[in-house]
Computed example of a mutant assay.
Amino acid sequence: MTPKRCTRRAAASLAVLAGVVVLGGCGIRTTQVPVDAGPAPSRVPCEVSGESITPQAQQQGIQVRVYLVCASQLESVDRTAQVTEKKAVDSRVQIAQALLDELEKEPSSPEHEAGFATYVRGPLALTGAREGDPAGTLRLSRQPEDLPMPALAQIVCTFAESRAAATGGSVLLGGPGEYAPRAYQCSAGIKERPDEAVPTLSALPSSPAAR
């Protein structure tokens, strides 16, 4: 085979097989060229598109932010909680219960399509601090430690970024029993890994609830 024919054959092979050089007729070994296309795009956007709050709902409630689980992490979504603005200002328990009710709801269609889910299962109720509890304590109808870790993480992070949080941003949660409440914290780590134990402060605030 002449050098001219060899060159034409190599050019034809390059045109047919992109990224692969085949020059078998000229005695050159086949070589595959790797292509770095970067990471595969995520199919879970974790972002609700469009406006899903009706004007009527806006008039009847207040704007709140709750944490749901998406792509194995905690991500926030905006909701309208059915509680009046006045009650939300006057009562920490009222706004905390409204937030808890929102967490118990199944995600809306836009939220579900974006990949959101909730691990908080009801019915769950809240009461205020008992005698001897630190000020700002919230008591759940179930022991917090008995909840699934992602559910507890959702509750703590939702409360921590609302008026339901105690002084300093921690969330003082207790259960229906005689166990003392714990001061839970919403850390960056728990938002990334909500299936792990929610961090707590080693010491509780010393000021008792007002009577």
Rank of each mutant, 00 (worst) to 15 (best):
A18H: 15
A166S: 13
Y119Q: 12
V16Y: 14
T118L: 00
R121V: 09
G19M: 00
A203W: 01
T54S: 15
T2K: 10
L74H: 02
G38H: 10
I155V: 14
T118H: 05
R121A: 07
P144W: 01
A210P: 07
L103K: 00
S49I: 09
T200F: 01
P208C: 09
F116Q: 11
P134I: 13
A10L: 12
A12L: 14
A40E: 10
G50M: 05
I28T: 04
V83C: 02
D133E: 09
A183L: 05
Y67G: 05
V66F: 05
A183C: 09
P176I: 02
L17W: 15
V120Q: 10
A57P: 04
V89S: 12
S76D: 06
T137L: 00
L138H: 04
V89W: 08
I95L: 08
S170N: 09
S49N: 06
G24Q: 14
G174Y: 05
P45C: 08
M149P: 10
I190N: 03
R121Y: 09
S76F: 02
Y67E: 10
S207K: 10
A197G: 01
K86N: 03
S109E: 15
C157Q: 03
E192D: 09
T31N: 12
R130I: 00
L14Q: 13
C6N: 13
S202C: 07
G61L: 09
A210G: 08
S109T: 13
Y67I: 12
P205S: 14
Y184K: 13
I28D: 02
P176S: 00
V33E: 07
V156C: 05
E145L: 11
T54V: 06
R139H: 02
P150I: 10
Q82T: 09
R43C: 00
P181L: 10
E51H: 15
S91C: 02
D146R: 11
T2G: 14
V20L: 14
P41N: 11
P134K: 06
E106N: 09
Y119W: 07
T2V: 12
A10K: 08
S162N: 03
R139S: 11
G122W: 00
D101M: 01
G27W: 01
D101S: 01
K87F: 00
A203Y: 03
L140T: 03
V33M: 11
L14R: 15
L138G: 07
L147P: 13
A160G: 11
G128D: 03
